[in-house]
């Protein structure tokens, strides 16, 4: 817990959510998944911070917002190592890893131009077919995407 305090002190949050241990290269995709561009509360984004585990890491601190669990779990698509800290009154009241759901609705984009999801006003749906390599399959056109090939909607 001492470590957490030190990191969180960069911009201490009274209430809100801190997402830590995001691989640097995944940071802006996580920002997108959480829809942070559309938020009105104050958000601190740390990029290329030093980390014992990764060398470099990213961190996102969102004031006054606690995300729904299924929203946070979407982060696992691009940042399976991410850690979620829920902050209330300056204290970390909950700390947990993100877990990849079996099915993803409306998060991943299918890059197949002939896929129905790119031609109808509808949500995409993907099944996670391999958790270790993070491989997903479009439930409509059956195209398969792995790791960096996975694009986030919007």
């Amino acid at each position: 817990m001492r470590n957490d305090k030190k990191e969180l002190a960069v911009a201490a949050l009274r209430n809100g959510t801190v997402i830590d241990h995001i691989p640097t290269e995944a940071l802006f995709r996580v920002v997108r998944i959480l829809g942070i561009e559309e938020m009105s509360t104050s958000v601190t984004i740390g990029y290329n911070l030093e980390s014992h585990r990764f060398g470099r890491k990213g961190i996102i601190k969102v004031a006054d917002v606690e995300f729904a669990e299924d929203v946070l779990n979407r982060i696992a698509i691009v940042a399976p190592t991410a850690m979620v800290n829920i902050i209330r009154d300056y204290e970390v009241v909950e700390k947990r890893p993100v877990t990849l759901p079996d099915e993803l609705t409306g998060i991943v984009r299918c890059t197949n131009p002939k896929c129905i999801t790119n031609n109808e006003p509808m949500h995409t749906r993907f099944r996670v077919t391999d958790r270790d390599t993070i491989t997903v399959r479009c439930l409509y056109c059956n195209h398969v995407y792995r790791g960096d090939e996975i694009e986030i909607e919007r």
């Binding site: 197949n112 129905i116 109808e120 439930l139």
Partner: peptide, 10 residues
């Protein structure tokens, strides 16, 4: 029959 993939599933 449709030219788009996944049309029948949808």
């Amino acid at each position: 029959r449709h030219f788009l993939e996944g049309a029948a599933q949808y």
